[in-house]
Amino acid sequence: MSSLVFRQYRAQALAAIGSLAAFAALMVVTGLQMAGQWHSALVTCAALRSCDNLSSTLFLGTHAVGFLVIMTLGVPLVLGILCGAPLVAHEFETGTNQFAWTQTITRRRWLAVKAGWLLLAAAAVGGTVSGLVTWWSGPNNALQGNAFNTGRFDIMGVVPVGFAVFAMALGILAGTLLRRTVPAVGLTIAGFIAVRLAVTEWLRPHYLTAVTHVYGLTQNWTPSRTAWQFAQGIITPDGRRLFPADGADISGNVQVSMVPAACHHLLSQTNPGPVLSCMQSAGFRQFVSYQPANRYWAFQGIETGIFVALAVALLAITFALVRRRDA
């Protein structure tokens, strides 16, 4: 069985290895260049004692390569489209399933071996791309401290492995359900984007309860640069949270519209001090809610687990469908 899988997929395997090698070469060359650039910028700013404002003045690497790195978001989808969707659908289209499913090898074993190798390959490709991107982004992560942000989190660490396995399983199921390759490709694209968007937007912020830091109106406090910050605003004495909206600011998170009637007479154009201390003594506080930077790997693990679990569920459905289908 395994040799059959290799025969069927050798063209894809060659194409994948070729493009991975080209991508790796590009990453290593530009990554070394960028590491050198980062090193020299650190030396320069250390000499001038200006390293604090480096993140707003320095651009590392080139836009073209940066663009390519962002596009690795689409790699799992490509695997699902080109290898996952046709796995069962193409056999149905060409009728070869009638041959494959009437041999001594059971249908279940046939599917298990094919799907097993492809999922393994998907995990390997996803992991390799992610490893390269993670190494390449080292200087940028150090400079911007944004590895936890949406969009950066998704292309580094272990989550791309989970995405690749999920996309592959989704492609296989779509092909089994629809029995035709092209509609299965469409379903895979739509399903992958929908699930990824939904998890990113609605689930990821809640994997662990966010930390809320409450501090005085006249104080200044920000979480560590590499934390994932959600919201900031002020808390009223009765515990309501007000968020800065559009309008005139007084200082930091405090806006004119938030000032209680009792403190209104202290409003002045020049000095925010009296209003703030009036509000402070009335019980107003500022808050900021965030996910601390040290939860990065926990979040990576949870997200990968979710997508692997989804992939397992999709595969179980695929097995049930294939066993029930007529040859």
């Binding site: 320069t44 001038l48 004692r49 200006s50 003045t57």
Partner: peptide
């Protein structure tokens, strides 16, 4: 490469002018 001011790399400035740019480590 390196830090820049309004799009101009600081390292491009003559050394005598670079030192005028920073009055403290902050900004």
């Amino acid at each position: 490469s390196g830090p820049s001011v309004n799009g101009v790399p600081v390292s491009a400035l003559p050394a005598s002018c670079q030192s005028l740019l920073y009055h403290g480590p902050q900004s």
